[in-house]
Amino acid sequence: MFLDIFIFELRYRFSRPATYIYFGLLLIVAMLLIGFGNTPASEKVYHNAPIVIANLQLLISLFGILLASAVMGVPLYRDLEHKTGTFLFSYPISKFSYFMGRFWGSFVTLLFISLGSLIGIYLGSILGPTFGTDALRYGPNPLWNYLQPWLTLTLPNLWFASTLFFALIVFTRNIKSIYSGGIVVFIAYLLANFLASDIENKDLVQLLDPFGLNTFDYQTRYLTPFEQNNFILPLSGNLLLNRIIWSGIGLAFFLASYFKFSFSYFFSTIQKKSKKKLKRAKHLY
């Protein structure tokens, strides 16, 4: 049953134009940024240097907060909106199959969308000279330079954001909290990064950053142009600890939402509210 719900969720997602719009936007923005040379690279650093690629993927992944709120909050609420809860009560669908099928189908969709930025950066580094950027500003293009930061930076960020917003819809049963929550989390994170610059304990700043922006900055701040052009940022030290801590917190959100979720809790509350509204309407008339 899990596989049926998982495949159904994927089919639904990939039949929606929004999935391809999100993917296309990330691809185009990333391609134009690196293609026109609008990167953090200094004059002696390639626009497609491993550190620059990682930096761009990390920055773009911050917008994954908003994407995760749009993608991960919808699957459960969709059944509330279409009032399919009664069918779930009558059909032999287990909690595990329903919850896991909805979550992983949506999460895989979000991973697909995030690949838009990875592909866009790759295309931009190839097409850069045709955009008018000096061809000498681009170096070698091994695929691992793109995959490694996606696996170590983008993927953990998407996991944390996905579990956060999925848990939010389970606990609140309110779609408004998802969309407003995405904006609030995004703004709060940017504000927290600004205030973190005044904290003297830099190790603490690196570990408390849920999306790793400060961690990446401190890990790469003193790299020479040669190191930026030739070496991938290793997953070690504070960066490794940061990824473990916040992936673990994401796992806690995931488990908390799973144990909190139940068909009777999630759907009967909505049905009771609908009955109360119906009674009030009859009373008025």
Rank of each mutant, 00 (worst) to 15 (best):
residue 257 S to F: 02
residue 61 S to Y: 00
residue 254 F to V: 03
residue 211 F to A: 02
residue 199 I to W: 08
residue 89 F to Q: 08
residue 95 K to S: 05
residue 23 F to R: 09
residue 249 I to Y: 04
residue 54 A to C: 07
residue 119 I to D: 11
residue 4 D to A: 14
residue 129 P to G: 09
residue 144 W to A: 14
residue 96 F to M: 11
residue 268 S to D: 12
residue 49 A to D: 07
residue 261 F to W: 02
residue 254 F to C: 09
residue 88 L to D: 00
residue 19 T to V: 10
residue 191 L to Q: 07
residue 186 F to H: 04
residue 37 G to W: 06
residue 86 T to I: 05
residue 162 S to G: 10
residue 243 R to Q: 10
residue 31 M to Q: 06
residue 17 P to Q: 00
residue 251 L to I: 13
residue 86 T to A: 10
residue 169 I to P: 03
residue 76 L to T: 03
residue 92 P to S: 06
residue 219 Q to Y: 11
residue 263 F to M: 15
residue 4 D to L: 10
residue 274 S to C: 06
residue 187 I to V: 15
residue 272 K to T: 04
residue 58 L to W: 00
residue 189 Y to E: 03
residue 104 W to Q: 13
residue 257 S to I: 04
residue 4 D to F: 04
residue 216 F to L: 13
residue 40 P to Y: 08
residue 206 Q to C: 13
residue 227 E to I: 13
residue 18 A to H: 06
residue 55 N to K: 12
residue 266 F to K: 01
residue 75 P to K: 01
residue 229 N to E: 01
residue 91 Y to I: 13
residue 147 L to I: 14
residue 158 L to M: 14
residue 243 R to A: 05
residue 49 A to T: 05
residue 52 V to K: 02
residue 230 N to R: 07
residue 42 S to G: 15
residue 206 Q to M: 14
residue 171 F to D: 12
residue 83 K to G: 01
residue 209 D to L: 08
residue 16 R to L: 08
